[in-house]
Simulated scan of single mutants.
Amino acid sequence: MIIDPRLHRITAAQPYPLLFATISGAHLYGFPSPDSDFDLRGAHVLPLPMVLGLDARDETVEDERIIEGLEMDIVSHDVKKFFNLLLKKNGYVLEQLTSPLIVHTTPEHAELKEIAKGCVTRNHAHHYFGFVETQWKLFSQETPPRVKPLLYVYRVLLTGIWMMRTGEVEANLVTLNESFRLPYIPDLIARKLGGPEQSTLDDADLAFHRGEFERLRAELEAAQAASTLREIPSEATRSAINDLLVRVRMK
Rank of each mutant, 00 (worst) to 15 (best):
I3C: 07
D4R: 02
L7M: 10
L7C: 05
H8G: 04
I10E: 04
T11R: 14
A12L: 13
A12R: 06
A12Q: 13
P15N: 13
P15A: 08
Y16F: 15
Y16E: 04
L19T: 09
L19P: 02
T22L: 06
L28Q: 05
S36N: 09
D37Q: 10
D37F: 12
F38I: 08
R41N: 01
A43D: 04
L46Q: 05
P47Y: 11
L54R: 10
D55K: 06
D55P: 01
R57C: 12
D58G: 11
D58V: 01
V61T: 12
D63S: 13
I67F: 07
E68N: 10
E68V: 06
M72I: 15
D73I: 08
D73L: 04
I74K: 00
D78Y: 09
F82T: 01
L85A: 11
L85I: 11
L86F: 11
K88C: 15
Y92A: 15
V93E: 02
T98N: 12
P100E: 11
T106F: 10
E111F: 02
L112M: 15
L112Q: 01
A116G: 09
A116Q: 08
G118I: 07
G118K: 08
T121K: 03
R122K: 15
H126V: 11
H127I: 05
H127M: 12
Y128Q: 06
Y128E: 01
F131D: 07
V132S: 01
T134C: 03
W136L: 03
L138N: 12
S140A: 11
E142M: 13
P144S: 10
P144N: 05
P144L: 13
P145W: 00
R146K: 13
V147K: 00
K148S: 00
L150N: 00
Y152S: 10
V153W: 00
L158M: 06
T159E: 09
G160S: 07
G160D: 00
W162I: 00
T166Q: 04
E168G: 02
E170T: 11
L173F: 05
L173M: 03
N177E: 00
E178A: 12
L182W: 03
L182R: 02
Y184C: 01
P186S: 12
L188K: 01
I189G: 00
R191S: 04
P196M: 07
E197M: 03
Q198W: 05
S199G: 10
F208V: 14
R210G: 06
R210V: 09
G211Q: 04
E212M: 09
R217C: 01
E219N: 01
S227V: 05
T228L: 14
R230V: 08
R230Y: 05
E231G: 02
I232V: 14
P233V: 05
P233A: 10
S234V: 06
A236T: 15
L245C: 07
V246K: 13
